[in-house]
């Protein structure tokens, strides 16, 4: 057991250090470009700068939840039921919830500046809030009592159901009348109406946030492994105690 702990701690590797350093560089560019180099929007003025955080964080939250569903499905389908899939699913959901919270907070600030209100019960905001609450529920399910196999099975089912909400959130602005604007980059006709530097900074944000997501998930799933290992130490201690009893008899 101690060998496992020594092998898996610290959680960093050369790969995570490279990803971490690259994400710092990309995010530094996003901050400089987003705050200083990109122009004000003709209508929104300075508040458009919120977009460089809001949009990438929303996309990465979607990505995280889809990754959670894929990892959960892999756990359910695989014959060995490798717990690595479950840990990746849980780590990705945790990071996804964090990015979803950033999306809601930045969107709320932008809404106050543009709409005049922090919150509106419009289709996009309402479905996003529901998605956020659903994944908090997913994280709560992961912490219910039971073995790690029970945890994995329960949460995998929840994850595969919860991911179905993402198309509803994304297309809510098309399906219903929404105060939230429609898609700019992912619009169906492919005509992106955005200033070039704004668009480049937005994509830089997506790249930077993706790297941060990967870095966080890698570290988090390794800390989850350590927690599982620590929880199993009770069983190991019982085996050692029984062996000691038997040899004493």
């Amino acid at each position: 057991m101690s060998q496992v702990l020594q092998r898996t701690s610290p959680t960093g590797t050369r790969a995570t250090r490279v990803i971490g350093a690259t994400s710092i560089l990309v995010m530094a560019w996003v901050v400089i470009s987003g705050l200083l180099l990109t122009p004000q929007d003709v209508v929104q003025g300075e508040s458009v700068r919120i977009m460089y955080v809001h949009v990438p964080s929303a996309w990465i939250a979607y990505l995280a939840f889809i990754f959670t569903a894929v990892a959960s499905a892999s756990w359910l389908i695989s014959k060995k039921h490798s717990m690595g899939f479950d840990r990746f699913a849980g780590a990705s959901a945790e990071v996804g919830v964090m990015f979803m919270a950033i999306t809601l907070v930045t969107g709320s600030l932008w809404g106050r500046l543009t709409w005049g209100e922090f919150w509106q019960w419009d289709p996009r905001l309402t479905t996003t809030a529901f998605l956020f609450v659903t994944y908090i529920g997913y994280l709560a399910v992961r912490r219910l009592e039971g073995s790690i196999e029970q945890r994995a099975r329960r949460s995998a089912v929840v994850a595969m159901l919860a991911v179905l909400e993402i198309p509803l959130v994304h297309f809510s602005v098309v399906l219903w009348r929404s105060l939230h604007q429609g898609a700019t980059v992912l619009n169906p006709n492919g005509d992106v109406k955005m200033d070039d530097l704004m668009l480049f900074t937005l994509f830089s944000g997506v790249v930077g946030f993706t790297l941060v997501f990967i870095w966080l998930v890698l570290h988090r799933q390794r800390t989850m492994l350590l927690v599982d290992v620590a929880n199993n130490q009770g069983l190991d201690a019982a085996i050692v105690a029984r062996r000691a009893e038997r040899s004493a008899n």
């Binding site: 122009p39 004000q40 929007d41 003709v42 209508v43 929104q44 003025g45 458009v48 977009m51 543009t114 709409w115 005049g116 209100e117 509106q120 105060l179 604007q181 429609g182 898609a183 700019t184 619009n187 109406k193 955005m194 200033d195 704004m198």
Partner: peptide
Amino acid sequence: IEVKHSNEYAEKNADR
């Protein structure tokens, strides 16, 4: 009154 922003983003141009 709530302002409904479009999905277009353009540089602010004082002359225009």
